[in-house]
Amino acid sequence: MEPIMAIVVGLLYAAAVYMMLRRSIVKLVIGLMLLSNAANLLIFTSAGITRGAPPLIPEGMLSPDGVVADPLPQALILTAIVIAFGVLAFAVVLIHRAYNIIHTDNLDHMKDTDT
């Protein structure tokens, strides 16, 4: 399972960087989306994948029975997803406003503030 996940994560990163290097700001935002998902999957994979063992403690016991999945990475990913959602919502509004004000979606035409 891990090798497949590793390849998927790698592909997601590659796709994200490719999209971010395009000229259109819409593709830039798509790139950012892919990037945050790639990071989430990376946490999921690198923390170790455990199959079919929810981290629940049986009634009357103080510790879980046998090997269980680590719940912490899932909590991390959940937090990261929520944050990424909020930030991306902002980014979408920003590119919409930017398009309305600058009248272009081409990043090459947004060089007025560069030096």
């Binding site: 971010m20 990071a39 406003r97 947004m110």
Partner: peptide, 29 residues
């Protein structure tokens, strides 16, 4: 000018956050 500046600011900072998050993931692993 603010819109142009903000597009760059937002992109680069989100990129940095993604790298930071990936590093945390690897470190946790």
């Amino acid at each position: 000018a603010q819109m142009e500046g903000a597009v760059k600011y937002v992109t680069l900072n989100l990129l940095s956050s993604a790298i930071f998050l990936s590093a945390i993931g690897l470190l946790y692993g």
